[in-house]
Simulated assay, not measured.
Amino acid sequence: MPERNDIENLSHLGQEETSYTFHYDPSLLETFENGHPNRDYFVKFNCPEFTTLCPKTGQPDFAALYISYIPDVHMVESKSLKLYLFSFRNHGGFHEDAINTIVNDLVDLMNPRYLEVLGRFTPRGGISIDPYANYGRAGTKYEQMAETRLLYHDMYPENINNR
Results as ranks from 00 to 15, higher is better:
62 F>W: 12
15 Q>P: 06
130 D>R: 06
58 G>S: 12
15 Q>H: 03
162 N>D: 13
5 N>I: 09
9 N>L: 04
49 E>P: 10
113 R>N: 11
109 L>I: 12
79 K>G: 01
98 A>R: 02
36 H>P: 02
150 L>A: 11
160 I>Q: 15
1 M>N: 09
111 N>A: 02
137 R>D: 01
132 Y>I: 08
33 E>V: 01
116 E>F: 05
47 C>M: 03
104 N>I: 00
48 P>M: 08
30 E>Q: 15
121 F>H: 08
77 E>D: 14
159 N>G: 06
1 M>V: 13
121 F>S: 04
141 K>P: 01
93 G>F: 03
41 Y>I: 05
160 I>G: 07
102 I>E: 02
57 T>Q: 14
56 K>Q: 14
114 Y>S: 01
75 M>G: 10
78 S>N: 15
90 N>Q: 12
67 I>L: 09
15 Q>E: 09
146 A>M: 05
35 G>C: 13
32 F>T: 01
40 D>T: 07
91 H>C: 06
128 S>D: 11
157 P>Q: 07
115 L>G: 06
77 E>I: 09
13 L>D: 00
114 Y>C: 03
14 G>Y: 03
137 R>Q: 05
18 T>Y: 04
47 C>I: 08
3 E>Y: 01
87 S>V: 05
65 L>C: 07
85 L>G: 09
87 S>K: 09
16 E>I: 10
15 Q>S: 11
24 Y>L: 13
98 A>Q: 04
13 L>V: 12
51 T>N: 09
37 P>V: 00
125 G>K: 10
145 M>E: 03
35 G>Q: 14
26 P>N: 01
155 M>E: 08
106 L>W: 03
153 H>V: 02
152 Y>E: 05
139 G>C: 08
75 M>N: 06
5 N>R: 15
144 Q>R: 14
129 I>P: 00
30 E>W: 06
17 E>P: 03
64 A>M: 13
107 V>N: 01
124 R>T: 13
95 H>I: 10
21 T>F: 12
4 R>G: 05
9 N>H: 09
64 A>W: 00
158 E>Q: 15
113 R>D: 05
62 F>Y: 14
132 Y>F: 15
99 I>L: 11
163 R>N: 11
161 N>Y: 15
58 G>Y: 13
54 C>H: 01
33 E>A: 01
90 N>Y: 06
135 Y>N: 10
114 Y>I: 02
118 L>G: 07
156 Y>E: 13
19 S>N: 06
136 G>L: 09
10 L>E: 04
151 L>C: 10
118 L>F: 06
26 P>E: 02
84 Y>D: 05
26 P>T: 04
138 A>L: 03
105 D>H: 11
71 P>F: 03
150 L>Q: 06
18 T>M: 03
32 F>W: 01
105 D>K: 12
141 K>G: 15
60 P>M: 14
23 H>T: 07
77 E>A: 12
128 S>T: 12
54 C>P: 03
76 V>W: 05
123 P>N: 01
64 A>V: 10
150 L>V: 00
73 V>G: 00
162 N>Q: 15
71 P>S: 04
113 R>I: 01
